[in-house]
Amino acid sequence: MAEAILSVRNLRKSYGALTVTDGVSLDLCAGEIHALIGPNGAGKTTLIHQIAGTVKQDGGTIAFLGRDIGGLGVAERARLGLGRSFQISSLAPEFSALRNVMLAVQSQQGSSFHAFRPVMRDPSLTEPALNMLERVGLAGRAHVTAAELSHGERRRLEIAIALALCPRAFLFDEPMAGMGPEGSKSLTGFLNDLRQEAPILLVEHDMDAVFALADRVSVLVYGRVIASGSVSEIRNNAEVRRAYFGEHI
């Protein structure tokens, strides 16, 4: 197996008496899509939050590119190369789609303390941003404000922003949610290619997508990883079937 780019060890998080992350360990290796599945309330999103830094873990370590990032802030982790999409779209609503992506491009290029040059007339920002929009099929909507985009378009914009960061690993939290069958299908194809750029930790409820894409699946139930393995191993795992698929299949 390739060396892990992202490596979570024994991560713990509780809110009062409620343990949402209970000793989770998992790896994300170069070139793979590692899917994280589990019933609602299993703690998937909280886990993503802890890896991205928006929620601070109570214990355990998070190593990224061989470096302990458990104590770093959100922005620092993003600068190191963690590209993230949110479960509920999180955009700058007043900015156009283009300017949303340009924000990521400018971050990627370095300092944000240039206070004089207009960004909209700066091709070093607009061109890469347009490029990213094109890749997710939003080039035609570049000048529409994020607030006016449709739900599916916002999901794709989230991914374009993550792409613009040229990250070393992607954290995608339910990118297919509410996309409809057509959208899910095209996004599945897109993610399938994307893994060559950087590995993806994918939280997803759409089982067709997960089974089509994942190199590895980890099943999270009540904050614990109850099983981890290839798609066929997970499909045939008795405990998983009982705990999770029992309700679905």
């Binding site: 991205a52 928006t54 802030g73 959100v74 922005a75 620092e76 993003a78 600068r79 993230r84 949110f86 999180s90 955009l91 700058a92 949303n100 924000l103 990521a104 400018q106 971050s107 990627q108 944000s112 922003i161 613009a164 960061l165």
Partner: peptide, 8 residues
């Protein structure tokens, strides 16, 4: 949150 998530 978005600003921080792009690294600023």
């Amino acid at each position: 949150v978005r600003l921080a998530a792009v690294g600023i």
